[in-house]
Amino acid sequence: MGGIVDFEVRFPSSRARVQDMHADSGVSVADILAVTHTAEFPALGEHEQAWELAAEAARAVLARTGVSPDDIGHVIYAGSGEWDLPFWSPAAKVAGELGIGRAHCFEVANFCNAGMTAVRTGLNELALGAAPYALVLIGDRLSRLVDYTDPDSKALFNFGDAPAAVLLGREDCAFEVLTSSMRTDPSWADYYSGDLEDSQVLMRRRGRRQGLGDAYLENFPARVDDVLTALGRTLSDVSYFLINQGDKGMHERLLDRLGLPAERSVFSYDRLGHMGGSDLLIALRELTDHKRLETGDLLLLASSGMGFTWGVTAVEYRGR
């Protein structure tokens, strides 16, 4: 099937700070820290754009791997659909900056599940086409969608930014993608939506429907069962279970539901916010940088996005 050849994450130079959120919203520092678990984290500054950081990440990956821009057949830009400019193709913009002139460039919008959706889409495209590589770019701009003056938006105050690039290939993969399972429960479609205020789109929670946490605890284990059944494996074969860093309590409850110890996951809440689709790449980088992986390790990557969608992708570490 192919998989991830290499990847890179770029953090913005600016920071979102709990003290500023407190001053803007009136929510107590303690209540905000119960969401963020850290006093500050990376977020796009006033003059920073996600596509530029994604392009920097991609440029680093291409330089490190020696892959020619002419060998990339698809450039897929993933995120919420709220790009740096409206009615615009960030995939094409980055391709132009990198000298990628022979690729099909397009966008995938699936919120914080978009990165893994784009990986699956890119691998499907590789299976159908002649080009040996595809490039996935993750360009979430989550911090720009939060109204810090709105106390009801407190649950979103941990939204940060970390654009990234993922090079996919048929061979020489660091992580072979084995299978994935994704499912959307459309009954949650209107739980969040955006308002346009002063030329800025801001996320708003609609109503007070209960049960989203239960939906997470139902859907993620079901997706885990799907991929393990497809592989003929069990949870005892899983070396690490990684998940978007959106809710630490949910992360812990899910591990408990699956019967997995915290040591078989990665927690970055103490230093980073929720970095959207890049959360899983940050966790993978931590595992590789600290040499916690061995060739043949099976990892499950769990991602979710508004809609609500839940996905689990199984990868095998092939070593580097």
Rank of each mutant, 00 (worst) to 15 (best):
A118I: 10
G307N: 01
G213P: 00
V94L: 06
F175C: 07
M203L: 15
T234S: 15
V61G: 02
S303R: 03
E263K: 12
A189Y: 04
R10E: 15
S13W: 10
L231N: 00
R223T: 05
I72K: 01
V75I: 07
T38C: 12
L260Q: 00
P90I: 07
R170D: 08
A23I: 11
R208K: 13
A165C: 06
G99I: 10
H22C: 13
A314C: 04
R205N: 10
T234C: 05
N113G: 10
A23G: 12
A283Y: 06
D147Q: 00
Y133A: 07
G305I: 02
D150W: 04
L260V: 08
P151K: 06
I76D: 07
G2Y: 10
H251F: 06
K154Y: 02
T295N: 07
A78G: 10
L44E: 01
W51A: 12
V27C: 03
V61T: 01
Y269A: 11
L228F: 01
D225V: 13
Y148A: 00
A50T: 00
S187F: 14
D70S: 10
P12C: 01
L53G: 05
A283R: 05
V35K: 03
G73F: 05
R292F: 08
A95Y: 04
P261G: 06
M116C: 09
S193T: 15
V9T: 05
S236M: 12
R170W: 10
V312D: 08
L298I: 10
A55E: 03
D20C: 09
G160V: 11
F106R: 02
D198T: 08
F241K: 09
C173T: 11
A162L: 02
L260S: 05
F220S: 02
A162Y: 03
P90N: 09
W188M: 09
G305S: 01
D190S: 14
G259C: 11
F157L: 00
M250H: 09
F267P: 09
T149K: 12
E316N: 11
D185C: 10
D198Q: 11
R120V: 14
G73Y: 03
G246V: 14
L301P: 01
H274T: 08
R144H: 11
L135I: 03
E40F: 12
G73L: 03
E197C: 14
S14A: 14
L280Q: 12
Q200S: 14
P261L: 00
Y133Q: 07
G207I: 05
A54R: 02
M1F: 13
G307Y: 01
L260D: 00
D161C: 01
R253L: 12
L298G: 00
T38I: 05
N219P: 04
V136R: 08
V312H: 04
S143I: 02
A164S: 15
G249N: 14
S153P: 08
D214G: 15
G277Q: 05
D6W: 12
E82M: 14
L202W: 07
S13H: 13
H274F: 08
D195L: 14
R120W: 12
V67C: 04
A103C: 04
L242H: 00
G79L: 05
L156T: 09
G246D: 07
A30Q: 15
